[in-house]
């Protein structure tokens, strides 16, 4: 697994991109393209996760003590509902992962979702900085490739 970075880091070779030939540059660019698309995918799934947590949090705002005893429709399947009454507006069950559910009060639940949203946001920012650095390197690589190509064409024209 290779790492590519703009700044010097331990256990990493420094490579002058100008020293590489076109084939090597193409391979290098392909590698960058691949990791960039991985980052795009993970960014997308993180954003979906962020939205879900945010939605759940917003949902809790409507869960006030006044809603106690109100009529609700409980979904049995995606297309079938049965009428019911809301009898517990103090606690909710939350999926905390790996099959565990925890009963929490509304305020605890809100804390939980806030924590999750900030965690996911952190991850998004982290990935974004890495992705930006990589796309910068990609642009530089493309620039060098273009100058190399132009030089090649010039040489060919001179020879002709």
């Amino acid at each position: 697994m290779s790492e590519i970075s703009l700044t010097e880091q331990p256990n990493m070779f420094q490579i002058d991109l100008n020293q590489l030939d076109l084939q090597q540059l193409t391979m290098f660019k392909q590698q960058l393209d691949q990791s960039l698309s991985v980052f795009q995918d993970s960014l997308q799934s993180l954003k979906i996760a962020q939205n879900k947590f945010q939605e759940s949090n917003d949902c809790l705002d409507k869960f006030t003590p006044d809603t106690k005893g109100k009529d609700i429709l409980v979904p049995l399947t995606g297309s079938m509902y049965v009428p019911g009454k809301l009898i517990n507006t103090e606690n909710v069950l939350i999926d905390i992962g790996t099959g565990y559910f925890a009963e929490k009060t509304i305020s605890e639940a809100k804390e939980y979702f806030k924590r999750r949203v900030s965690y996911v946001t952190e991850q998004i920012e982290h990935i974004q900085t890495i992705a930006q650095e990589k796309s910068k390197i990609r642009e530089i690589t493309i620039d060098i490739m273009e100058t190399k190509l132009q030089n090649l064409q010039k040489d060919a024209a001179q020879r002709a």
Binding site: G99, F101, A102
Partner: peptide, 10 residues
Amino acid sequence: LNPGNEIYKL
């Protein structure tokens, strides 16, 4: 979690 919170396993 507080000791009072209930835990369920799916």
